[in-house]
Design a protein around this nucleic acid. Structure first.
Lengths: 227, 227
DNA sequence: TGTACATCAGTGAACGCGCGTTCACTGATGTAC
DNA sequence: TGTACATCAGTGAACGCGCGTTCACTGATGTAC
């Protein structure tokens, strides 16, 4: 699975890197990403601060790694759902509703991880572009599900314009040059609408209003297929 | 307009408070809310750090004030739109599309202000509940517009369940005990879906994909009325 | 199997910085007679 | 109008803390002959 054979030192290095990231996530879960501190992580691991510079060039590199891992984790969750649907006796592909549940569970599992990807941008930090490969894996699964539901074509003028626009800019969709525009539009709606409910839920806006987040989420999922 | 007559000292106090908040917004616009620093604000005003403690008990109180002002500003924008629609020769109330544009312009005017309200929660900080009064002013305008469009009743099972749920928990809607459930549902969809597109736009996810945010936003607005 | 050397993990001290907040104090502004 | 007093804005020093990061160094682990 791992490419070349690892020397013991390499193995050890990787273990420590993993432990650093693990502690980093704990810290983010407690105080958010902007409070991430290398010194605090080192202390928690029983090491001195400068020791971490053997493993990460600086704070930004660690954050980049965390972001990459987070995207990887979400993509894996989507791919696993696709694999399970293909393997199981049911349909060939996971339905939109299934992917929606995967997304919501993944987000609830660690809200700060979700916010690291989709929340307020970390000030002074800009993510590298090498995550686009991972996000298009994710979009591919989503697009398959969208195409499978046979979405209705656009009904309004703006929706039609969006379909044309998406057909012209489909780089984000990865290796799907064949996806029909209505499927592209549905995928985008999935992403943006579910992000809407989810982030309001995770930020606590619904509970502050006495509303049930799960129900609101499910209704948005239902509405996706309806139009 | 202002209740009691102000002594010169009171007037001066309020001016300084305003200037502090102004610099605070500039700082937030530059580095985000979690980097807000009283000392830095003081320095920018040509004062020493401790001087600010004459005006704000501590950092959290300043943030609370900023959040309150931000809600106030958004509510005022909505109320102004309502007043303009009532005064103008047109319809009695601003349409949903009009309010949507107000929301988007308000957000683009200062993205960090938007994120302070609707983005990743500030770690270790919890907003007080005295903003609910302001938010229900906002919701009232929105509900009027929703009721005026005569929204269709729910079509799916989940949507119907949401309408029932919202009818049972309508405290957030302020002084609108009479709003029909479909209007409540439409208002919630307005809020959550537009928050979805808007926050993705403001976080730069669309430009990273080569997509046109304004078009996507308008399509979501169009879809609101369609069902 | 044993020795000489290179590699590398981790330490401790240091640099320069900024933070929120408290406290005793100065000096200007307003108030009361 | 003038004087005595109270109020209050702002200062500077200090406390204790944490941050990212560099650097010279020690000591353990691996490698080559």
């Amino acid at each position: 699975m791992t490419g070349a054979t690892q020397t013991p030192r390499e193995r050890y290095r990787q273990q420590v890197r993993e432990e650093v990231k693990e502690k980093a996530w704990q810290q983010i879960a407690g105080s958010g990403a902007s409070a991430l501190s290398l010194n605090a992580i080192a202390k928690q691991m029983g090491m001195s601060g400068p020791a971490l510079y053997r493993y990460f060039a600086n704070r930004d590199e660690l954050i980049t790694e965390l972001i990459r891992d987070a995207y990887r984790s979400l993509a894996d969750a989507f791919l696993a759902a696709a694999a399970a649907a293909a393997g199981g006796g049911g349909a060939d592909r996971p339905g939109l509703a299934g992917l929606a549940q995967v997304l919501r569970r993944w987000a609830l599992e660690d809200p700060h991880r979700y916010f690291l990807l989709y929340g307020t941008p970390v000030p002074g930090y800009h993510a590298p572009q090498d995550v686009t490969g991972i996000t298009s894996e994710l979009m591919s699964v989503l697009l398959d599900a969208c195409a499978a539901t046979g979405p209705a074509p656009a009904r309004g003028a703006k929706s039609a314009a969006v379909e044309g626009h998406l057909a012209d800019h489909r780089e984000w969709a990865g290796s799907h040059p064949d996806a029909p525009p209505p499927a592209l539009r549905l995928a985008l709606a999935f992403w943006s609408r579910l992000h809407g409910v989810l982030s309001l839920e995770l930020a606590g806006h619904f509970t502050g209003m006495g509303l049930d987040p799960a129900l609101l989420f499910e209704a948005e999922v239902e509405a996706l297929s309806a139009g």
